[in-house]
Nucleic acid binder design. Structure first.
Lengths: 224, 224
DNA sequence: CCAAAAGTGTTAACGCTACACCCATGT
DNA sequence: ACATGGGTGTAGCGTTAACACTTTTGG
């Protein structure tokens, strides 16, 4: 139901909320802005959609600007359109949720920003625009996704231990889980299988190495 | 992360997927277009967002153009942005899901369309743009919402019978349910209460009249 | 009195939760 | 030998799923 696009002057941007896990803690990728009026502030990586570019493609492009990852999960989150969300004018932002294993993410230093950095989600600084709202929304969606789908594959490297897996759930959902019940549930869903070999991470007993049976999105009730 | 909106010429529209229930069947509100190149085709009601208008406000405005409803549920669905989705140019559409009781929806006849009509969702005609995709997505979201929230209130009038309620679930989820288990579940959730009085709808035993205890959105696992 | 929808309980299977001890390794 | 995380089973409880007959009304 559209008419004459030339009559509008609404801008369309994408913003990426990129999550990852390190040492059983949730991190989010932030950039430090040069541009006024937010000079020095932190924000989500994003940018205007190009001419003849689809929103999904723009999100991928912005993502590749800061990092290069093979195993990646990306989904559209929500479109934020408050009039005053951008002081530069009426800019609507299509927000995306991205998940990646931090081991595979090599950050690039960019001229257009002062800095690009993984920041603990629990110590989120003030963000530019309405990006705090976007980040909070993304966190909620992530919680839901963990509980009802198998997306967790997108946060872990190829090989991992069951304790690694459990820590992802515990840190994101913010509650401790029972080790035995957790393993029973995970194994009954056929999400993972033994990869052969052990992973040693200290002066203790090494853990069995696991891998995901599939890295395709699936709906599965994982945790109540 | 936006720069200079004047450099873009992307249009932004909203499209509403409006569902309702009649005689235990799911209906969707469609308009028949006059505008070329879709003259005579059916489509979802929608339109470009105005200058200085927020997407939510645009969705409400478009909704008021075709109907006037008090009890209404409206939520953003997804933003569709395929390059070729609109032959008029690069127009991104923020799609909305709306739910209303059909009794309260008085359709307005509009000059800009040939017709505005409730159509059975099961007999959906070919739609203009990518509106078939939007409608399919909306239907999925509706199914999920029914199972995990109390939105069903938005599809029924003030007073209704438990059989009415069950038929809403059966028609949208596409499966029969056990009457006794259904009632047990609904009553245990305190979603509804007796409204006093009976509702007779034929030559048979009249049913107890119920009303919702609350018409505010809530998360509640209703059906597995 | 007949047709049609309203209304009402019990049981068995399953899934979830809670809970404690031994094992393997490096220092 | 010890400190630390890895690894394993069972029993009680609550929830879900399957199932059939009686009641009320209008015609």
């Amino acid at each position: 139901m559209a008419k004459h696009p030339t009559k509008q002057s609404i801008g369309v941007a994408v913003d990426n909320c990129i999550f990852s896990i390190k040492n059983g803690e949730l991190y989010i990728l932030l950039i430090q802005m040069k541009k006024k009026p937010f000079t020095g502030m932190w924000a989500l990586p994003g940018g205007l959609i190009h001419e003849h570019e689809e929103p999904d493609a723009a999100a991928h492009r912005v993502l590749r600007e800061e990092t290069n990852v093979a195993h990646l999960y990306l989904e559209q989150l929500y479109t934020f359109g408050k009039i005053k969300r951008d002081p530069a004018g009426h800019i609507i932002s299509v927000a995306y949720l991205a998940l990646m294993p931090m081991e595979e993410a090599h950050l690039k230093t960019l001229l257009k920003y002062f800095d690009v950095r993984w920041s603990k989600f629990s110590e989120l600084p003030r963000l530019a625009y309405d990006h705090e709202e976007i980040a909070a929304y993304a966190k909620q969606r992530l919680e839901w996704k963990l509980e009802y789908t198998n997306v967790v594959w997108s946060l872990l490297p190829d090989r991992f231990t069951l304790t690694d897996l459990q820590k992802v759930y515990e840190s994101i959902l913010g509650r401790k889980m029972d080790k035995r019940n957790f393993r029973k549930k995970i194994m009954s869903l056929d999400l993972v299988e033994e990869a052969g070999g052990k992973i040693a991470r200290g002066a203790y007993r090494p853990a069995t190495s696991y891998k995901f049976t599939s890295r395709k999105p699936k709906i599965v009730d994982i945790l109540s």
